[in-house]
């Protein structure tokens, strides 16, 4: 399990920091510890779906603000849904991507508790989805491509969220995104969970980072509902087919962005270069398409998902 590996790596790293080798024996021990650490780091790669769940949720994984800083210039954040309030769990605005104006929207997860309280751990209410929709309609008005970054444990199950129409807000986004006349590229960067993720994901190109996950609900929820035992979440992760490789095989996503060794958080710069290249080539191809062909292809893509008729006939 990657989690244990993380703990052991941390232990070795702090041990190294405390060591001040002076004698030959100490130097030998230092080198040995260093070597152990290198070996552990070599081992640090996900082997199971549960490992991917762990990586996808890693607190050091790049978040929406990191992507905005790394991939775009001149970002101007737009706030509020114009109906009720500003929802910090979705960040959105206008920016330049390789000099081209684009609308950027993404779920926001924090790294510290205060950060997470401000963005509600990346769990939007209807205000977040309505803000996103407002920005997407604005992008359509000005002919700007839309880029969304998906990373959420799901829509927030709260009292006010329900009162203000969580379901309606998500449904509206799904319907509206399906027919927007500008190119949309979505990237699942961490965990894409339930309708709360999909509400930013009805895109022409849906990409997933190599170790991201995308599912109808969390593996814990799956295990607790179907097996009445949330401790079987690792098994559930395996069963659910939630990895990028699974989703590509099921025909539910369009591509996978490779992550550096040890996952995105181990070398963010290398990751950003990959994301930048893929985003650029996808957008370039989509921008060449005529509007009617673009929306028709997007519609047809989602229309065909889970239609196993053809498979059956083979």
């Amino acid at each position: 399990m990657l989690k244990e590996l993380d703990t052991r790596i941390e232990e070795l790293e702090s041990k190294l920091e405390e060591m001040h080798p002076e004698t030959e024996a100490q130097r030998l021990e230092y080198r040995q510890t260093m070597q152990n650490l290198q070996e552990l780091k070599q081992e640090y790669r996900p082997r199971t779906a549960a490992d991917k769940v762990y990586l996808a949720r890693h607190s050091m994984r790049p978040n929406i603000n990191d992507y905005i800083d790394a991939l775009f210039t001149d970002f101007f954040e737009c706030r509020g849904d114009r109906l009720c309030k500003d929802d910090g769990s979705i960040v959105g605005g206008v920016a330049l991507f390789h000099g081209m104006p684009v609308t950027v929207i993404g779920h926001k997860k924090g790294r510290t508790l205060p950060e997470n309280l401000a963005c509600n751990f990346g769990m939007p209410g209807p205000e977040g989805y309505r803000k996103a929709l407002r920005l997407m309609k604005q992008a359509e008005k000005f002919g700007r491509p839309i880029i969304t970054f998906i990373d959420t444990p799901g829509a927030y199950p709260g009292k006010e969220a329900e009162e203000r129409g969580q379901a309606e807000a998500i449904a509206r986004n799904l319907a509206e995104m399906s027919s927007l006349t500008v190119p949309i590229v979505s990237i699942v960067t961490g965990e894409g969970s339930s309708g709360g993720a999909l509400a930013l994901g009805v895109a022409d190109a849906v990409l997933m980072l190599e170790h991201a996950i995308y599912a109808v609900l969390s593996p814990e929820g799956f295990a607790s509902i179907l097996w009445k035992d949330s401790s079987r979440w690792a098994e559930a992760a395996q069963q659910m087919k939630l990895t990028a490789q699974d989703l590509l095989e099921l025909g539910l996503i369009d591509g996978i962005i490779p992550e550096p060794t040890g996952g995105a958080h181990n070398n963010p710069q290398a990751l950003f270069e990959q994301v930048d290249a893929q985003l650029y080539s996808r957008l370039k191809a989509l921008c060449k398409m005529r509007t009617s062909a673009l929306t028709a292809a997007r519609y047809q893509k989602f229309r065909n998902m889970g239609n196993f008729m053809q498979e059956e006939q083979l």
Binding site: A175, S178, S179, G195, V202, V216, L217, G306
Partner: peptide
């Protein structure tokens, strides 16, 4: 809600049905 036994395939049915209705509405 979504049929969990079908995983992400069931999730995508939300997009499929919503898109069909948007077209119908238009």
């Amino acid at each position: 809600g979504a049929r969990m036994q079908e995983g992400a395939v069931s999730l995508m049915q939300m997009a499929k049905t919503s898109a069909a209705l948007k077209k119908f509405s238009d």
